[in-house]
Amino acid sequence: MSQATATRTLTFSQAIREALREEMERDERVFVWGEDVAVYGGIYGATAGLLEQFGPGRVIDTPISETMIVGAAVGAAITGLRPVAELQSSGYFGIAMDELYHKAARWRYMHGGVFTVPLVIRLPEGAKGAGPEHDVSPEALFLSASGAYVVIPSDPADALGLMKSAIRDDNPVLFFEHAGLYAYRGEVPGGDHLVPLGEAAVKREGSDVTVIAWSRMVGESLRAAEQLEGEGIDVEVVDPRGLRPLDLDTILESVAKTGRVVIAHEAPKTGGAGGEVAAIIAEEALEYLESPIIRVASADVPIPQSRYLQQFLIPTAASVTEAVRRLD
């Protein structure tokens, strides 16, 4: 029960679950729904045990109906509840896109601000060998969905702290979780661990190159930085921990310090959010750049269902290392 007092080691999936548990204990308006989230505990285990603790009134298995899952979450949010709705795969965004883009993000604005829409939509993303529809990282699609926050943790401590903040925030939050990270273990602080939304983390300090990365690419970039250290290149890794609100101060401060930028994400390069970040840096900090910006991303092809083929497509630490070496 309640919060752990000391630092503990949790998987990313357990960290999400602990955040849900702590916030459900704290606020009875918080409930969880989605496909297979109750008895089954979520296909990634992120809601395991919640049904036993909170009962079927607050942990709810829905029909396979993403339009309803998101639309009804908006209806519940504007009438006093704080839903956490799970789409079993972020690849289902298309089934719920009107509800995500026009309803969750805009219901407050278009009705003159008379409502708040305090909801969290959990969106498992990323390559896992399931194919072109399930393995997407569609965060950039929501860059133009003003009104909604886009939050993306890269490790268990951030997953817990950002989820707790997202649940407490009165804005709608699209919360992306890389499926390849769920089993990844990390240290999580005890107590009421909150990570503010819209605050980037400098995951590693360095003076030569800034690597801006999010989600699974943060860990890959940290591994790349270790290897490059041996070659005498001092890499700073900045994790914006989401795309909106975007912490420009931290990004631009790092760029001003290093003068060299690599942006790394798993989504394909064209239409990926790296393009937006690069454009902002070009507009705001061109005078600091000593080398062209390089983007590390997937190629512009659908993600194949074959894990064997995925290894040639999905960017890794080696992709980041290679990009950093190409900088002037």
Partner: peptide, 29 residues
């Protein structure tokens, strides 16, 4: 897009059909 939470008026979406999900959610609530 008139709404008035005090009167239970929950608003309207311009993409017709979005009323259904929101109505279900308000009833759930």
């Amino acid at each position: 897009h008139f709404a008035d939470p005090e009167l239970g008026i929950l608003g309207q979406g311009g993409t017709l059909g979005s009323c259904f999900g929101i109505a279900t959610g308000a009833a759930f609530s």
